[in-house]
Write a protein that binds this DNA or RNA. Structure first.
Lengths: 147, 147
DNA sequence: TCCCATTATATCGTATTACGATATATATGC
DNA sequence: GCATATATATCGTAATACGATATAATGGGA
């Protein structure tokens, strides 16, 4: 049987895997364009969302932002610098632990986040089923969306 | 009722939206690290997958790559240039339409793609349910994964 | 109490890359 | 055949994540 490819190999459904990534990219692309139209960078919108959407139990520090955004600590420093320069967040040294810097949205940041989030939720409702179907195909699982 | 916020506004579940984006970032991050460990850029792996996973009906041209990757045509030119320089794909002028350039994987590219795709499928199987649950929460739908 | 390891944030130079503007080649419709 | 559309290519620019490194604050044990 030396002529056979490895068993696992021939079982890979490249079309399905590619399809799933494609759907993700489409969603991310939508986000980029919506953000740009609103005058903000896509990643910066996501950062606002990450800060606002943090569980109550977690403090919105620079480190928490880094973890949420899956970037390095110092990249989060720069990111929050950009957010503050645009007037969407404010930084404040924590009193409890003076190493920490707490981030919170300004009213302007809140408004922007709200508007964009509405668009995102709408897009997700329409793109969600396609995403889910593509994911199901990629892992060979049947997935059902109820309401 | 002027004191009320807009109805839609208060209904936004920021935690759920943020959670979904977080799960996506985690998955993308996994891909970046897996790719890096395999000696390839995450985006370049995705490009290989996009080329290989194209429906039979579509030709693997530079333009098709651009659409699959959701980038501009000239960015796809540069991307395929990088892929070729690394020896993972080859370009060939199309005979049918000499404007087009057809892309196909080299054996080396195929091997790399196969190895990484196996990892990705495995990760998707484990991360998929979390992703789906987060998506469901974001759009307020109950979703069931069967087998 | 003092020291040192740890944690949190910050700065700077570098490398990568997507993009806009632009160019060239080929195909197609009238 | 010629104008227009399509496909790929080139180049300069801007943005940004990262590694290396620095500073500040905390906390635990001798």
């Amino acid at each position: 049987m030396g002529w056979m490819k490895k068993r696992t190999a021939r079982q890979i459904d490249y079309q399905a895997l590619a399809g799933f990534r494609y759907e993700i990219r489409r969603y991310l692309r939508f986000g980029q364009q919506a953000a740009r139209a609103a005058g903000i960078d896509a990643q910066q919108y996501q950062a606002l969302l990450a800060i606002k959407g943090l569980p109550r139990s977690e403090k919105a520090t620079v480190g928490a932002l880094a973890e949420q955004m899956q970037i390095e600590h110092h990249s989060a420093v720069e990111l929050s610098g950009r957010l503050e320069r645009h007037g969407w967040i404010r930084r404040a040294r924590s009193r409890a632990d003076r190493r920490e810097v707490l981030l919170h949205l300004t009213p302007r940041g809140e408004r922007l986040l709200e508007n964009l989030s509405l668009l995102h939720r709408r897009e997700l409702r329409s793109a969600g089923p396609r995403l889910i179907e593509a994911l199901g195909a990629a892992i060979h699982r049947r997935i059902v969306v109820a309401d």
